[in-house]
Nucleic acid binder design. Structure first.
Lengths: 213, 213
DNA sequence: CTTTCTATTGATCTAGCGATCAATAGAGGA
DNA sequence: TCCTCTATTGATCGCTAGATCAATAGAAAG
């Protein structure tokens, strides 16, 4: 039997236990999405009684929001790190596209898709969604600004273009997830579309994509 | 009180009652999304007991799938009709973009967003989603084919470009819904991106957009 | 008017959700 | 070694979900 009739208790420090429950929530969300983030699912994953999860968490809504923030902002940090390795604005856009459309990011896409749906029922989640969308928009706009400074991009509205590129990325990721297709198949065309939107010379971003095997 | 203690029964023909329940399901989904499509919500909307809804429906999952198909395919039919009024492939793409990003289509966007999330828990819904995505992809690819025949579009892979444009549209619609912004603000830039993807001369699709007031 | 048929009701069952809490047992200090 | 503190358990409550069904009441036929 997977769940013993009477559990052998392990007593840990509140900090450690809290961290374990937090990690269990991340694992559940990564695997099955935000809609699977229930009190009992997190408890089972952490190997504790459901009451303990409730004890360490203000409410499930709070845990939901915190988990969403954590996963999504971690991805943005990862993309930031990847992008910072590239040495020109067109290369940075190319790296961003490749990183985000990588199938290894399907878990985050699932988080976003669930969030859009659940956000209508939780004001706190809706707020977190807007905040994370804003962060992404600013990040992309920043890359575009650099391209403008380098006279490689000519768009006059980096914020609006940033939003549009973000929306396109999310749409493509959602479709790739739903149809179980590798998002990388969209990378080259998305790069072309980005060239148009940021006002880059044709081919300058596509040329920076990694060659496909 | 809104719900009387004992309801005055109205006996109708099974066909009529079935149609009423079907319509109530459409209304509920349009207003609050697929996730609000519960036995009791549909019953309340139709003004009948919950048991009657269950009686006229194989299962809620079946009703969910049927309602999704109906709403989504009705929108595609509407877009088809709009688009067929335009007299050139670039104008048809422009009409498609404008129709789909109109804020009046927020209800259908909500349906899609809920569907992406719920689709993971219902094999039948997942199948319907793929089927409707395919229909959209074929429709867009058809418009692109016409552009190729007229030597106005040069892309060599209309199906792939169709999929990509569809994904972009869905992403933009989802973002506009989430951030409570008019999707029309994205129309011009999306048209530019489409020009690039289908291989049309710059400005040919944008020029066909309705002037904005 | 009466009878028959069946559309319709609403209580009820099971299941899963978040939340609560009295009881319990493990770990560290005296 | 024993004691104390509190981390932890699991039963429980109230709620909502889909599904089921015996009882009921309208509408139509005779």
């Amino acid at each position: 039997m997977s769940t013993p009739a009477t559990r052998t208790r392990t007593r840990k420090s509140p900090q450690q236990r809290s961290a374990e429950i937090h990690d269990a929530a991340l694992a559940v969300a990564r695997e099955d999405g935000l809609s699977a983030l229930t009190l009992r699912a997190v408890a089972a994953r952490a190997g504790v009684a459901s009451g303990l999860v409730a004890h360490y968490v203000e409410s499930m809504d709070e845990l939901l929001v915190r988990t969403f923030r954590e996963l999504v902002s971690a991805e943005l940090d990862e993309v930031r790190a990847e992008v910072s390795l590239a040495d020109s604005p067109p290369a940075r856009v190319a790296r961003m596209i490749e990183t985000v459309l990588d199938s290894g990011h399907n878990d985050v896409t699932l988080i976003w898709v669930d969030a859009w749906s659940l956000g209508r029922g939780s004001a706190a989640l809706a707020e977190a969604i807007e905040e994370q969308m804003d962060a992404w928009q600013s990040f992309i706009a920043g890359v575009i600004d650099e391209g403008r400074d380098a006279r490689l991009f000519t768009t006059e509205d980096p914020l609006a273009v940033g939003w549009q590129i973000l929306a396109m990325i999310d749409g493509i990721a959602a479709h790739a997830l739903t149809r179980r297709t590798d998002g990388a198949a969209f990378a080259e065309r998305l790069a072309q579309a980005c060239e148009t939107l940021v006002g880059a010379r044709a081919g300058t971003i596509v040329a920076e994509l990694s060659p496909r095997g």
